[in-house]
Design a protein around this nucleic acid. Structure first.
Lengths: 242, 242
DNA sequence: TATTGTGAAGGAATTCACAGCC
DNA sequence: GGCTGTGAATTCCTTCACAATA
């Protein structure tokens, strides 16, 4: 927890002003390459780079070399450099990469430099756990509203967020400009729910419900399959020799 | 919910007897190829195949072609056939794949044909949500025990599972033959916890804690990064033209 | 010296396309 | 006719190795 100069800034969403392509600082203006064709593998790794970078930033680290960062993340230095190079020039030879700048740049690439409003569908055990989960905000997301079928829950406030009836879906989604939804409801009728939310303007969904959901046209559904991860671990564990 | 003949069987863990390489039915004995070298990509897709297959099985579907199954999962038919072929011969030409047999075979490949005991570390909001989560059992996992630091929680029973003190880690892990752990605790001291659990015999960890954990030698740590998934969705959504 | 960024090489994963089968 | 399983081709991803730079 060495607290060097952190220049009085929050880890994320410092400048929530313009969103125009303003060249704010020195290094940042170099990496605005339009991006040729970025693979999803790269995007997924960028997330893990950013998570580590944020830890480092909190610890007061200002610069880091590809060698060290790659070791922390668990990739090869070449891979790290290649990933970053997809978006332009990040590094400073001999000083390495500026931790804070790079974290902010990745945010911009991901589109999480401004906080996005997220809607939660289903306020059961898991939904409430997600509502009280700290860590979304500092990554650029905020569960702004919740929906549920249960009359007991509607109108109630959970961890600071109001629970609405599904009847209000269209107006609430519009009011809060929700583009991302988290699915944590019962499986029944979830496809209809997704279709309706998509029509209301929600573009992508993170699905915790153990049920297949087809993405509406132009939308994306990402499945959070806990059992699948456990199965992967199970498979890996029985491969003793590696 | 068409209820054709389901031959009076549970979706999983029907025959928990032998675990010896018994050839139970007709088709199953063909796919015991030792596996040359299976990629992790294939393993991850196998999980999603199995999830869909189980849905289909519940709906009473007996056979399915690679074309239809691939469409449901969201991969190409060639990819599906190639994945399955890594393990031997699954399909019956012109009838397609036997839904139930294939689901069982994937279980065997994953090592989830017998239920595995899982330990939960941390009985906070998320931990309790996981304890009450239905859906582990039918995929071959059961949270058998929980651990927490909080004296209020120790000795308490949550959703049928007893919460133990960390002092009892070694004995409890041995008693229940725990090989898999789920991390849902506070970030502080999590690395030490993992190292100690690994020494006690836990081989792999599913980590919900937003903190980097280095896998002990011979062990695996899989990170469940919710924010990373949201970032991926955010990135995809702003690529309008696809 | 040591580091980044990047052509080029190598390897891995996916798709094609068809033989063999029903 | 249509299907699976699979060699071959292709596309994609990673690593190597070095020029350029500080």
């Amino acid at each position: 927890m060495g607290s060097e100069d952190t220049k009085g800034r929050d880890p994320i969403s410092l400048e929530t002003e313009a969103e125009t392509a303003d060249p704010p600082k020195a290094q940042t203006e170099r990496n605005s390459r339009p991006d040729k064709r970025v693979s999803l593998h790269t995007v997924e790794r960028l997330s893990s780079y950013r998570r580590i970078l944020e830890e480092l930033d909190h610890e007061g680290v200002e610069y880091i070399h590809s060698q060290s960062l790659a070791a922390l993340v668990g990739v090869t230095p070449a891979q790290l450099r290649r990933d970053l190079a997809s978006f332009g020039t990040f590094g400073n030879i001999s000083r390495g990469y500026n931790v804070y700048q790079m974290s902010r740049t990745i945010s911009r690439i991901m589109g999480t430099d401004n906080v996005q409003a997220v809607a939660l569908f289903g306020v059961g055990d898991l939904g409430r756990a997600l509502l009280s989960y700290r860590g979304f905000e500092e990554r650029g997301f905020q569960i702004a509203v919740a929906f549920d079928l249960d009359q007991e829950k509607i109108g109630h406030v959970f961890a600071g967020r109001r629970c609405y009836a599904l009847a209000d879906l269209e107006t609430v989604v519009a009011d809060y400009a929700v583009r991302v939804g988290i699915l944590a409801s019962r499986p029944e009728g979830i496809q209809a729910l997704v279709d309706r939310a998509a029509a209301a303007g929600v573009r992508s969904f993170l699905n915790f419900v153990p049920k297949r959901v087809a993405p509406p046209p132009g939308c994306f559904v990402e499945h959070m399959d806990i059992s699948a991860k456990l199965e992967k671990l199970s498979f890996l564990s029985r491969r003793e020799g590696e």
